[in-house]
Amino acid sequence: MSEKIALFGAGGKMGVRLSKNLLKSNYRVAHVEPGAPGRQRLKDELGVDCVSIDEALDNADVVILAIPDTIIGKIAHEISPKLKAGTMVMLLDAAAPFAGHLPDRKDITYFIAHPCHPTIYNDEVEEAARRDYFGGGAAKQSITSSLMQGPESAWDLGEAVAKTIYQPIKDSYRLTVDQMAILEPGLSETVCATLLAVMRDAMDETIRRGVPEKCARDFLLGHMNILGAVIFNEIPGAFSDACNKAITFGKPRLMRDDWLKVFDREEIAESIRRIT
């Protein structure tokens, strides 16, 4: 008989994505959703009925917490006494585990799985896949996972469930919890999201200074495409002397000298403290 999965937060945005992919598998899934709108959405879109917490946890092999970081600790402690020894609790983000918000139970497994999302440079040809920016639908994406606690034999089950909920999969990477925290919030949010927000602010400023909006957008996104392809070695190429000079003088104008300290463990820990 296939493993039983209890999916908490099944009616949320992430939960529905996971529910759709789990329906394609042989896993037995029990859906838990406290909100009436979420329960109705599952019923209308997927024909899925939700069950009580106790029914979902009864003999569950894997418990997926597709819930906000701010309540993971609370929910994990509430359900912990109901879990049989050997149960796998799967988190979709490293923040709460990194911050130490999980119950101290040595006889259960903690597994973390997080998507990379479809890459900007890819080989997708179908329209649905090319416009699947989030992943878990039509476009292939890589995933990152960590066996935080539990026997080595639990890895295969955790990775298999992760590949199911985030399918279709490009590559699967095994990391430590600390490495996952470096990637998010460090690389993806503190650095990437911040710099992209700055780029959007810069585009808005060029528009304020008189450049037509559509022109500014086309110009910026087009240069993001080609400059990114060169910087990330997607294509062979080199920047012009003028561009290299702009980078040399632009980076210290835009970035603090010690900006790489955002990857120090203390900085990551403080960022996660704010998140959770």
Results as ranks from 00 to 15, higher is better:
Met1Trp: 04
Ser2Leu: 00
Ile5Val: 13
Ala6Ser: 12
Leu7Pro: 05
Gly11Ala: 04
Gly11Phe: 10
Gly12Ala: 02
Gly12Asp: 07
Lys13Ala: 09
Val16Asp: 03
Arg17Val: 09
Arg17Leu: 13
Lys24Ile: 00
Lys24Met: 09
Arg28His: 12
Arg28Glu: 15
Ala30Trp: 06
Ala30Glu: 15
His31Gly: 00
Gly35Pro: 04
Arg39Ser: 10
Arg39Gly: 05
Leu46Met: 11
Val48Glu: 14
Asp49Phe: 06
Asp49Cys: 03
Cys50Leu: 02
Ser52Ile: 03
Ile53Gly: 07
Asp54Tyr: 07
Ala56Met: 12
Leu57His: 12
Leu57Thr: 00
Asp61Ile: 05
Asp61Gln: 11
Val63Gly: 14
Ile64Glu: 14
Leu65Lys: 03
Ala66Leu: 05
Thr70Asn: 13
Ile79Asn: 15
Pro81Tyr: 07
Pro81Cys: 07
Lys82Phe: 06
Lys82Val: 01
Lys82Trp: 10
Lys82Ile: 02
Met88Lys: 05
Met90Pro: 02
Met90Asp: 04
Leu91Gln: 10
Ala94Ile: 14
Leu102Pro: 04
Lys106Trp: 10
Asp107Trp: 06
Ile108Trp: 12
Ile108Pro: 09
His117Cys: 01
Pro118Leu: 09
Pro118Asn: 05
Pro118Phe: 10
Thr119Arg: 11
Asp123Ser: 11
Asp123Pro: 01
Val125Arg: 00
Glu127Arg: 06
Ala128Met: 11
Arg131Phe: 12
Phe134Gly: 02
Ala138Glu: 10
Lys140Gly: 00
Gln141Val: 01
Leu147His: 09
Leu147Phe: 05
Met148Asp: 15
Ala154Ser: 15
Ala160Gly: 12
Tyr166Cys: 08
Pro168Trp: 00
Ile169Pro: 03
Asp171Ser: 11
Val177Ile: 15
Val177Gln: 07
Ile182Val: 15
Glu184Val: 13
Gly186Pro: 03
Leu187Asp: 01
Cys192Phe: 14
Leu195Cys: 08
Leu196Arg: 12
Leu196Val: 03
Ala197Cys: 07
Val198His: 06
Met199Thr: 04
Arg200Asp: 12
Arg200Phe: 00
Arg200Tyr: 00
Arg200Val: 03
Asp201Ser: 09
Glu205Phe: 03
Ile207Lys: 14
Arg208Leu: 02
Arg209Phe: 02
Pro212Phe: 02
Glu213Asn: 11
Lys214Asn: 08
Phe219Arg: 09
Leu221Val: 12
Gly222Asn: 08
Asn225Val: 07
Ile226Val: 15
Gly228Tyr: 02
Phe232Asp: 06
Asn233Thr: 11
Ala238Leu: 04
Asn244Lys: 14
Ala246Cys: 08
Ile247Trp: 01
Phe249Thr: 04
Arg256His: 07
Leu260Tyr: 09
Val262Asn: 05
Val262Asp: 03
Asp264His: 13
Asp264Ala: 11
Asp264Lys: 13
Ile268Gly: 05
Ser271Trp: 05
Ser271Pro: 01
Ile272Lys: 06
Arg273Ile: 03
Arg273Pro: 03
Thr276His: 04
